[in-house]
């Protein structure tokens, strides 16, 4: 699903951003983002198309990555590894939050 509102964009697994939008919003370069895709750290929803689109949740990790790159003066080669770990942390945090509020008992429908 695309973010259909010009004023805001949801950053989650249900909405998409283009490569150009990520470049514009994150300050990372076209080459740096291409390398993230080549290394499998950033996975487009349409890898065989010319204009890649990504789930907008990536933007959260990529903005952090951009901050870390700037603040710690990270080399381009370390960006993919850093993004993989940022995404892993994000996924684990979501799982942890879910497991704190649910249990494994079977569900009975009303």
């Amino acid at each position: 699903m695309n973010n259909d509102h010009n004023e805001f964009m949801w950053l989650d697994e249900h909405h998409e951003v283009s490569l150009d939008e990520i470049i514009q919003l994150s300050g990372l370069t076209h080459d740096e983002l291409h390398r993230l895709v080549e290394n499998g750290a950033l996975i487009p929803n349409n890898p065989t198309d010319d204009s890649w689109r990504f789930n907008s949740h990536y933007l959260v990790s990529i903005l952090t990555l951009s901050r870390l790159k700037h603040d710690f003066e990270l080399e381009s080669d370390s960006l993919a590894l850093t993004l993989v770990f940022l995404e892993r942390i994000r996924t684990l945090e979501v799982q942890l939050q879910r497991s704190q509020h649910t249990n494994s008992a079977p569900t009975i429908d009303e």
Binding site: M1, W10, T102, N103, A105, P106, T107, I108, D109, E110
Partner: peptide, 21 residues
């Protein structure tokens, strides 16, 4: 239902939060 134990989840469909769709 009769014979319900502690910790069982009873689903009430579509009474949660709205989704984007």
């Amino acid at each position: 239902p009769a014979g319900t134990s502690s910790g069982q989840k009873l689903r009430i469909a579509k009474r949660g939060m709205p989704k984007h769709n």
